[in-house]
Design a protein around this nucleic acid. Structure first.
Lengths: 266, 266
DNA sequence: TGCAGCGAATATGTCGGAGTAAATAGGGAG
DNA sequence: CTCCCTATTTACTCCGACATATTCGCTGCA
């Protein structure tokens, strides 16, 4: 306090950006905002963003924070910057759509129906295969973890957070039993993103049917070491999730019937 | 709680511009270096890196460049930084193993045999499914692109760069015909990474057999609109690639027989 | 002696500016 | 009209300072 510090109390610094949460770093918030804007189509592929100085000033942040946010987006393949050319949004083919953050940004707003269909198709391919591997490679510990998670699911049901946590544990146990790191990250990312969006539908309608028996069928097939039965049982689970999301989408976009219908007819 | 140990910068890393290529940004080079070091196990999960100032000075770069590199690694789930706590390497489950850059870093050094097995298993699941979708949804343009790529492959063979380029075009055409964005990014990433490592084996031995007929079989099944035949034909292609990589690994690590044997026996 | 609250130390986070390098656009020479 | 060269624009890098958050240790109390 003895030295004359440069005290410029910026009044404008009070802006509590709604995207800025506690515990969240500033550059993370910027990346989240720009990421959602890109995924939502506000910035289309090929568009070139305003210069560093201009954009940073517009966002009321320093260039350092802005640049670090851009590095994050660049790391996920959303944008690329070159001197003189500026920072431009890359074509969709370059986006790392399977990145957990990108998936989160994609589902932050109104997710693209076509993209949701793509994800479920991929899931329908990957998850049964994972169950197949799990049935071949699981050991006692894997089965015990699954059994415990299943019991917890029965106790709490999927309407409670504890129940959904148990559901995640069950699926994670299956993934762990595959002994396949690549399969684990992929399935975990997709499953988390999809379930994250599926959660909101719980408040709209009761569950169409009790999902516990289907989970039990998967468990029993894996415990019995029957790969084909496990794959088939998991297939049923994915179809069930698809059905849920389908009806949820129908409710949510009543004005966009053609898109929803196209999704339903598949 | 903190099982990790502190990490000091390697003394031998005095030269900082060796990893620095033209056109490559500085923070990109830093990220590449740290990324490969993490993937290779030089920095193990749980380890906490030296402070920003110390590490940046050791690398002979400014703190800004170092921080931007860390943001990239953080975006890919390799590390996480918190005030006062430092920057620590995250557990493997958090790594985005399917990120193209991460795959590149994983294959930069000696790739982990187990991880290669994982990737091929995933590929064996995904690629036939992609061929199945392509057989159902391809149109005339897709078929023409495939046919042209196939012709180019025949002309140049896979020993030339032009031939390998045509091979990539062929597989990309299949992916485009799936009409599935998620499947495209996934398969493109894995295929690129695997083929990138498979390339080095070309100088060691001649191709075991002519791969063109297998490609033709895939094309004909897709053109005929036969999903099952397309999936089966693609399955053969993946097995062929697996065989190539298998033999390449046997040659490369003669001192590591037990790992190679484990990989071969599968 | 043990614990609980509180203060200080420390490392990351944020900031603003200055100078460098690179790539594109435009002008000038052939 | 083509080609090369220059000039400008923009991102890239560096620097030094301040702000903030978290951890650790100290003090005081039970």
């Amino acid at each position: 306090m003895t030295t004359g510090k440069n005290i410029k109390v910026d009044e404008a610094s009070k802006r509590s950006d709604e995207t800025r949460g506690p515990g969240r770093r500033l550059h993370g918030a910027i990346a989240h905002r720009l990421g959602t804007d890109i995924l939502s189509g506000k910035y289309a592929p090929g568009d070139v963003l305003s210069g560093e100085v201009a954009f940073a000033e517009e966002l009321k942040v320093s260039r350092s924070a802005y640049r670090e946010a851009i590095q994050v987006l660049s790391a996920k393949g959303l944008v690329a910057s070159r001197p003189k050319a500026g920072t431009r949004v890359l074509p969709r083919e370059r986006w790392n759509l399977l990145d957990p953050d990108v998936l989160g940004w994609a589902f932050a707003g109104e997710p693209d129906i076509e993209f949701v269909r793509s994800l479920f198709e991929l899931r329908a391919v990957v998850e049964p295969a994972a169950a197949r591997f799990a049935a071949q490679r699981r050991d006692k510990d894997d089965l015990k973890t699954m059994k415990d998670a299943l019991a917890a699911m029965r106790r709490h049901t999927l309407t409670t957070e504890a129940g959904r946590s148990a559901d995640r544990d069950f699926h994670n146990a299956i993934l762990a039993a595959t002994r396949n790191a690549a399969l684990m990250t992929l399935s975990a990312s997709i499953g988390a993103a999809v379930n994250w969006t599926t959660q909101f539908k719980q408040r709209a309608r009761a569950l169409p049917r009790n999902p516990i028996p289907d989970h039990v069928r998967v468990y029993e097939a894996i415990a019995a070491g029957d790969p084909e039965a496990a794959a088939e049982a998991m297939n049923v689970l994915v179809d069930l999730a698809l059905e849920d999301t389908r009806s949820a989408i129908e409710d949510r976009v009543p004005d966009d019937d053609h898109a929803a219908a196209e999704f339903v007819t598949k």
